[in-house]
Amino acid sequence: MDRAYGNRRTSPLTVAMARLGLLVLLLALWWLASEHVSRNLIPSPPETANAALRLWLEGKLPGAIGTSLITYLGGFALATVAAVPLGIVMGAFGLLGRTLEVYVYALAATPRVAFIPLIIVVLGLGIEAKLFVVFLGAVMPIVINTYAGVRQADADLVEMARSVGARRARIFRAIVLPGAVPYILTGLRIGATIGLINTVVAELYTAVTGLGGLLALYGNTFRMAEYFVIVLTLAAIGVVVTEALRLLERRLTHWTKPTH
């Protein structure tokens, strides 16, 4: 995948250096902006670092991270457990897939915030409602990508498998499912991103807790340094989770590498 265009492969070190360089540049710009924009709106990097340290030592930040992670990872795990098998079954049984797909697409296109009042009425304001909001955000991209991956099995490989005498079940196990893995992982990555967004949404709209709760608190009271700390924390969680999934993808698709 790295060599989609041309065959020049940049070394991981170069990439890391470039990323670090950009980080330094962004920090510099941020600092510059904090000096020139009214001080109340953009806190300087040191101010923000101080706020982070304070929040961490007070225990507010670790507590909020813990609460949010439970919602996020819990909802995401539920979505994965439900969506991957559903997508596989939809792909395996043509009629079922064709029947369900319109509903899946319709649900995926509906803004999930629209369901929040209903969810609150049914599930209340507690952890169940929050988990469900995250679940709802993450589930559709995973279903859709898994389904697409199973449907787009390589017809040539399937025919090859038939020619060596493989039956449906073996073809599915040996050709179709492994071929869908990259699609499933893409679905998980998109699901993880939307799941994080929905975590914050859930914490803002239901009982106000976690990082979303702190975001609202500091945003409404114009404590911009603290507010920045929360935003950066959310960004860091997003990076860690998607990078972990990317690593998993590398692991599972190592066979695409052209060198030994």
Partner: peptide
Amino acid sequence: FQTVRLIPW
């Protein structure tokens, strides 16, 4: 077959 059709993984 006309193409090699190897299982890449």
